[in-house]
Design a protein around this nucleic acid. Structure first.
Lengths: 201, 201
DNA sequence: AAGAATTGTTACATGCTGTATCTTTATGCT
DNA sequence: AGCATAAAGATACAGCATGTAACAATTCTT
């Protein structure tokens, strides 16, 4: 019988703790430096950890970043809701991505770094893939009779638009309200999709 | 009276020649290596030039890249034609970006590197800005009564979609024909815009 | 042919990377 | 409480890239 455990067989907590220190260090540094200018030495110093300890957990600076982005993905996942065909065309309705946009707007400094800095190239592919996983079901449901290949294309189209506009909004320091942003992206995407619905045979 | 001159007062051709060597070297290296892994030493070696010569022309690897991207922009500019309101909604019409897409498809290896590799982060902003300069006139003409801020947003939306889809197409090695790609992007963008036309007061 | 600009040669200090060896510390288990 | 084990620290090293400097050689213009 185990007493000190809070659940399953009690692993050594140091590795996970170190990784979190390193992630936190990276986030803090991203606040002040361009991602490309951050060295592993800097990350280790910021985390109060020996440099070699970094290499024992990550092979790469990007690997640490990916690990962190993964936690961002989990943070954002609850905001992604499935879209029903009915809500798609109703004008003035609340766009489905608005809650997520609002959350990102609340943490805009961080997401600005992730989506707009030199970090973006690394993060973009990963984020897009995550978005596609979430939205492909929606598109399949909304366009059931459309060819699978074409559906993949439309899915990517929607998501690259959404991500691009999000980055634009963050980069330009609130050029409009989040509501306007969400409405525009929604309109651009869904009305574009509506063309495919009406052109189905 | 000048004899050796072919025009204006004959400048020293060495600097420009060196810059072209360096650009060519970068393109050749991009073919085989990831942009992030290319060092200035490698560029200088490939160009058969002393390393310090690089620093006499460019401060940075990115500065060289930007200089090269500028020449790419000039290469692509002739393909960008203004869109007339009449052609916008006609289904089955040739999408205005198709010629450019075809040209890019012909040189896909190169543009794949530019738009999909780690080089993308540096190039993306620059390319997008160029595209926006070219398309903003179109959008202003097509949506004359729309608010200027909103027009800026729509312009960016169109271009981030176009660029994103282009990168997707290049990255996935011809998942569809260029014609389908252009048609989809055109439909997504223009039908999305049509929503703004019909919602004008 | 001479002066000026460009490029090449060599060298140096600095910093980052990735790895290795050895020691110290913290953790989990009995 | 004590022990075995895993993790983290300390130190060192070779290799490479960066950025700069001083000086020599080349190439261009006039």
């Amino acid at each position: 019988m185990q007493i000190s455990s809070s659940g399953e067989g009690r692993q050594d907590r140091r590795p996970e703790r170190t990784r979190q220190w390193l992630q936190k260090a990276l986030i803090d540094l991203i606040e002040d430096y361009d991602y490309g200018d951050i060295s592993i030495q800097m990350i280790a110093d910021q985390a109060n950890v020996a440099r070699i300890t970094f290499y024992r957990h990550y092979h790469d600076k990007n690997e640490l970043l990916m690990d962190y982005i993964e936690s961002v993905r989990e943070e954002l996942a609850p905001f992604v809701k499935p879209v029903s065909p009915g809500t798609m065309m109703i004008d003035g309705n609340i766009p489905p991505m608005l809650p997520m946009f609002r959350y990102i707007a609340q943490h805009r400094q961080l997401y600005k770094r992730i989506l707009c800095g030199s970090i973006a190239a690394v993060a973009r592919r990963y984020i897009l893939e995550s978005m596609i996983i979430y939205t492909s079901d929606n598109v399949r449901r909304l366009l059931p009779h459309v060819d699978e290949d074409k559906r993949r294309m439309i899915t990517y189209c929607i998501n690259t638009t959404t991500l691009g506009m999000l980055a634009w909004w963050l980069e330009n320091d609130e050029p409009c309200t989040v509501e306007e942003l969400a409405a525009t992206v929604f309109q651009h995407n869904t009305i574009g999709m509506a063309g495919f619905i009406s052109s189905q045979t």
